[in-house]
């Protein structure tokens, strides 16, 4: 205003007047731009942070849900299988007390023994599915070999695995995680991909641990993995992701350039070793 008045009242040259106004506008514009730009950056960062938090939360929820499902499964196994078997044994033994005829007593005891054997087998299966004994005693290599042998035994799919350098074992909890990841991935491959072969290789270089799985079925690429991982339904991939991030590892899904097979690589840092 004052400037305008000054321009009007006295004969300030228009160069000076417009130059000053222009510079002023530029300076003020710059300051305003900086402020708004910074606000936008901060807002963007907040959004990013929130998205990350959301994803973390989703992973956490998935792992909790998986745990619950696992518990339900164990509870169902115990309740539906072991419970009735033991109740039947109790019935046979009860009959022993009532019935004093020796031959029928023997028969009842024999039956009870059979059922107890069954129960033992059942409980052993349950505990093995919870924690494979080979993994604990002989390490990841043997456990994975076991899994692959079992798959091969079915005859419908050609599965092979090869450990190139596994002289140093991973920490036991890491071994368990890697085992679960591989199990879940193999499970997915068997269920969804319709593959005819699965090949797993392990390698180590510069203190890094690699697992690569090849298969020739209909697999996932990295973008598909990201997409499925963020969907609310489906626990398997989320669970794999949360285990991988727990191990501070990295997981890549690729399609081979020749388009004939899919490759999944898992990399773990060197501090996972014992």
């Amino acid at each position: 205003m004052i400037l305008l008045q000054a321009a009007g009242s006295s004969n300030i040259p228009s160069v000076l007047f417009f130059g000053t106004l222009g510079m002023l506008a530029l300076a003020v514009g710059l300051v305003i731009f900086i402020v708004f730009h910074q606000r936008r950056i901060i807002r963007y960062q907040h959004q990013l942070q929130k998205m990350e938090e959301d994803q973390q939360k989703m992973l956490l929820e998935a792992s909790i849900q998986l745990q619950e499902e696992e518990r339900q499964r164990i509870a169902a196994d115990l309740h539906d299988d072991a419970g009735p078997l033991l109740a039947t044994v109790r019935l046979y033994l009860n009959e022993n007390i009532v019935n004093l005829d020796q031959s029928s007593q023997l028969q009842a005891i024999y039956n009870a023994k059979q059922i107890i054997d069954d129960t033992i087998q059942l409980i052993r299966n349950i505990s093995h599915s919870l924690m494979p004994p080979t993994l604990k005693n002989f390490g990841l290599e043997s456990a994975i070999n076991d899994v692959f042998q079992k798959i091969n035994g079915s005859g419908s799919i050609n599965a092979s695995c090869r450990f190139h350098d596994y002289r140093r074992r991973l920490k036991s909890e890491h071994e368990l995680s890697v085992y679960r990841i591989i199990q879940e991935m193999i499970n997915n491959i068997l269920k969804h991909s319709n593959a005819s072969f699965i090949h797993l290789t392990q390698n180590k270089n510069d203190d890094q641990f690699f697992i690569r799985i090849h298969h020739d079925g209909f697999g996932l690429t990295q973008t598909e993995f990201e997409k499925f991982k963020n969907k609310p339904q489906g626990l398997g991939l989320k669970n794999i992701q949360s285990r991988v991030s727990l191990l501070k590892g990295q997981l890549f899904f690729e399609k081979d350039p020749s388009q004939t097979y899919f490759k999944i690589s898992l990399e773990l840092p060197g501090d996972s070793f014992q």
């Binding site: 160069v15 000076l16 130059g19 000053t20 510079m23 002023l24 530029l26 300076a27 710059l30 300051v31």
Partner: peptide, 10 residues
Amino acid sequence: LIYFAGTFFL
């Protein structure tokens, strides 16, 4: 910034 930008032409 505003002071010097404004008085620059002056």
